[in-house]
């Protein structure tokens, strides 16, 4: 197997790497680029811990070949905060104790951010269905959903002020 050269953009930074043809995007992020915030909980798309966005679409990075990332825009949990400023979702997750062990947290935050970008005012049911692909074994989801709803409300408030 000869390695493939990939040119891509990760969290806004132009990035190049070599990967095996059968290597997943998750493995490339974690093992080649040092971006270990995306987690492998299952490797089969059932837990969502590896969630990233590719060209704006929420995907499981374990179910995508690294080679497919050529010319793509990839964002990971490492790209969520802007400098010192946490994203409102990140802040609300801490404030609401929406994590216990924290292993699912990066994937859930990436997924929740994608939700609020396409639906700034989700109902509780919409949030629960959107996040159904992100398993959390610690919290029973209660505080996660509360944190997402609270962050959404705050972000809507900010948007109103901005306009």
């Amino acid at each position: 197997m000869s390695q493939i050269h990939v040119s891509t953009t990760i969290n806004g930074d132009a990035t190049e790497f070599l990967c095996e043809p059968d290597e997943t995007l998750l493995d490339a992020l974690r093992d080649r680029l040092g971006l270990t915030g995306s987690k492998e909980g299952c490797g089969t798309g059932d837990c969502g811990a590896c969630s990233v966005t590719v060209n704006g679409r929420l995907v499981c990075s374990c179910l995508m070949l690294a080679a497919e990332a050529e010319d793509a825009e990839v964002t990971t949990i490492e790209g969520m905060a802007e400098g010192e400023a946490l994203h409102p979702l990140q802040r609300k997750f801490i404030e609401h104790a929406a994590l216990q062990c924290g292993i699912c947290t990066p994937g859930i935050l990436v997924a929740a951010k994608a939700l609020l970008e396409q639906n700034p005012a989700p109902t509780e049911t919409e949030a629960r269905y959107w996040l159904a692909g992100n398993l959390c074994r610690c919290t029973g989801y209660d505080k996660i959903i509360r944190a997402v709803m609270d962050a959404a409300a705050e972000m809507r408030g900010e948007m109103r002020r901005a306009s």
């Binding site: 270990t36 949990i77 946490l86 801490i94 924290g102 947290t105």
Partner: peptide, 21 residues
Amino acid sequence: TRPNRPDGIDKVTGRARFGAD
């Protein structure tokens, strides 16, 4: 009371290092 957990930022930014990290 309900203060923020001290390891909160590490855990929401992906910096916290777990077993495979």
